[in-house]
Amino acid sequence: MKIKNTDMKKMKNDGSHYLNPYLGGVILGTVLLLSFYLSGRGLGASGAVKNTVAATVNAIAPEHVEASAYYSQFAGGDHQPMSNWLVYEVLGVLAGAFLSGILFNRLKLKVEHSPKITSRRRLLFSLLGGLIFGFGSQLARGCTSGAALSGMAVLSLGGYITMVAIFGTAFVAAWMFRKNWI
């Protein structure tokens, strides 16, 4: 869809607007800094998914958790996967994003997709993307927030490597899937 170089804000006729990205970055950086100052760790998101999955499996088949070399690291035994820093933090993320949605008038139930594809296709790719992302986040011990962003804040080599790998691959892969987006 061809649109002339106009102010981006004008195109959002639903009345919503975004913060200046650099201001957003400073806020995000400050929250991350506070996280290290208060709790000694960075922010995360996929860790809560991992704990939820482990807790669910633990509820259904506890002996399977004990036997698994992966689950047993954080579920079963004395572990309390649902009473975990990351789980509380993710609940906070939901609340914070919801507040921002109210404040900037963005609360709306919809499937966001390119006009060239159907909602169905978008949802299918969302599901697949989530599945693949979830898988990769376990392998790399964290996602874009937990491994890459928080890792970069403390200059972790692994964080930088993961960041370059994610964005490098996504640049190539985005062109492969460009029909879904532009």
Partner: peptide, 8 residues
Amino acid sequence: IMGIGFAM
């Protein structure tokens, strides 16, 4: 792997 999931 995450990059692919990201793009999809």
